[in-house]
Amino acid sequence: MKEEKHFTLDELSALTALPRRTIRFYMQTGLVPRPVGANRGAYYLTEHLDRLLEIRKWQSAGISLKRIRELLIAADPSADIPENIRQQGEVIVKSHVFLRPGVELVIDPAEARMTNEEILNAVRKVLHAINETKGEQNETE
């Protein structure tokens, strides 16, 4: 039987260059499984290391944690990852951009990781595309 490599939290932190608090946060929010064993005797396996490296890879590509969560669930639906960490009754600020009757663009800049300029450009482009689809003239700004 193959001997599984055991890691401490310190070692995981050193290998992934992620602070221990961050790793603990991922475990608390279900992105990474809990350690094997309990309390002082707890240890981590290669699967923990792999998961952390995966998350780090996506983060450095600019993807939000919420989106990463969705990707992880999609990749392995049997993995026990809770879908959402939002609290009951949580209030989020989003922008509802009215484009034309019946068409709205909803943007949460935190989740989308977009700057104001990017949002404005996106809105312009979407509006342009819709106007074109409708065969209408596009106004020059």
Partner: peptide
Amino acid sequence: QNNCECAILAD
């Protein structure tokens, strides 16, 4: 373009 911000209940 008319824009507004909304509060949306989450989970």
